[in-house]
């Protein structure tokens, strides 16, 4: 069965969804990501959804679940590239995606993660002093 590839970039994982996502594929991605975060001790995950033509209640729930799962694994997830039409539709659907961090595109997501993690490292070393 087809799986969505998970790439390693530095200390991050990168997923770019470029296919129509059925529910089984979405669940598989969530499972694969959870495993990959643990295996690679990833500190950040970028999920690029610029190829997704819709986000419905099921896919929205998957994005929220991935964000929660990542947090529990001490990893920070960020969703990038949501098409404007998708964002507008989400609001009308009633999905708030609370707890899901978003950014415009992969570059911005990477920049955010680097800054965010550097800030956390600093805090940690302050506490040690």
């Amino acid at each position: 069965m087809y799986r969505i590839p998970i790439l390693r970039v530095e200390e991050f994982l990168l997923v770019s969804i470029q296919t129509d996502l059925d529910d089984a594929l979405a669940v598989k991605l969530q499972d694969d990501l959870t495993t990959a975060i643990a295996t690679h001790h990833a500190r950040g995950v970028i999920i690029d959804i610029s190829g997704l033509e819709i986000v419905d209640s099921f896919i929205g729930r998957m994005l929220a679940d991935i964000s929660t799962m990542a947090r529990i694994q001490d990893c920070h997830a960020i969703v990038v590239g949501m098409q404007p039409a998708v964002a507008i539709t989400l609001v009308e659907l009633g999905l708030s995606l609370s707890g899901v961090q978003t950014a415009l595109h992969i570059d911005q997501g990477m920049r955010f993660l680097r800054r965010f993690l550097a800030g956390r490292d600093e805090e940690a070393s302050d506490e040690r002093e």
């Binding site: 819709i54 986000v55 039409a85 539709t89």
Partner: peptide, 10 residues
């Protein structure tokens, strides 16, 4: 299109 397709999906 996106609104209609999302409703259809649900």
């Amino acid at each position: 299109q996106t609104k209609l397709v999302t409703a259809a999906s649900e």
